[in-house]
Design a protein around this nucleic acid. Sequence first.
DNA 1: TTACTTTTGCTGACAGTGTTAACTTTTATG
DNA 2: CATAAAAGTTAACACTGTCAGCAAAAGTAA
Lengths: 198, 198
Amino acid sequence: MGISERKQRQLEQVRSAILAQSWQIVEDEGWDALSIRRIADAIEYSTPVVYKHFESKEAIRSAFSKEGYALLADRLHQAKKTHDRPTDQLMSLSNAYWTFAEEHPKYYQIMYGLGIPTCDMVRETREIMQVSTVFHQTIEAAIKESKQPDADVHLKAMTFWSILHGLVAMTMVSPGDPKTAKLILEDAVAGFIKALAS
Amino acid sequence: MGISERKQRQLEQVRSAILAQSWQIVEDEGWDALSIRRIADAIEYSTPVVYKHFESKEAIRSAFSKEGYALLADRLHQAKKTHDRPTDQLMSLSNAYWTFAEEHPKYYQIMYGLGIPTCDMVRETREIMQVSTVFHQTIEAAIKESKQPDADVHLKAMTFWSILHGLVAMTMVSPGDPKTAKLILEDAVAGFIKALAS
DNA sequence: TTACTTTTGCTGACAGTGTTAACTTTTATG
DNA sequence: CATAAAAGTTAACACTGTCAGCAAAAGTAA
């Protein structure tokens, strides 16, 4: 009796309208400009309708955070494919990471925005894991090929990730020349890879 | 006619009361809990009085950011003194940096909080520079003693800073075991120093 | 078709927020 | 003491997240 299917579809439509309009607001005016009332205005519904789909504003932010991690994971996977040697893959990963942050700063901002209650991040864990796994696997392979195969994978993976994030975050709070920023990134990653391989 | 001096003193008193009470609120309940009305309540004045001393809420945040950078710079200077060899100093600096972030997370959060309009940071530049300078000078000395004295100081200093910040930020958004976090830091910094010295 | 039920959506409110204009009280000076 | 200046207050504007309660529409059963 396809009637409830249609309802389901309409619900989905509203939900994705919320996300679409929210994203427009964020891209145009930044995260601070995003409010439930503005979303409601944009989708031409009243405010409580938004709460039918997202239990809070934080839930909307969380949804975008998940989206961001998924997108980043995808970019990383693609970047990894372009090379076979693990050390080259690491270089490629760092490039993709940087490019992602540069192209989607709004995503990066919620993904790593400080002040997020850590418990709320549980729902995003799946997507974060996808990113984490790419790093772990590549690092693991790199370690196996290196001259010190007993190095701690988790430790090295976190170090790698931290270096990447550190640079992205630094250039976001005090943006200088993007080219020098990328130079710094390459320098840091090269140093890391060298320390890993030798 | 010490009368205007007394007034000046009273003004200063209110100003520091604002800062003191604000800090209490932040330490107790986090940055989100800080509002002009709550500050006014705490200092037992009406809200516009707060605006006599700070032109906006952002100005109060900025003041704490400056304080944070000044405190960090102090800690870094003290840490540097404990060693003579530049490479040892770098290790000491990274330790001090980490300890600062661990002991004063509320400071670190405004200092590096994302989403801050970059123009508002101009007023904090002096204090940021003090931190930046410690890094630059130590790195410069380390480079001079190294086997590649033509390395770019600015680039290496930024790399160093980014590594430190990356790790602090990562453990703040997804806090794991602090001990492993510190291990990661030491691993990363050791790698950096090695790459620099060799 | 009518009566009933469920879903859907809206209005309006509560308790907050940053910020400021206009007013009152206090204080210092001629 | 009157007057001018400084200090401090109230009350408002335009917002915010969130939700209880009500009206309207849609689906179901007789």
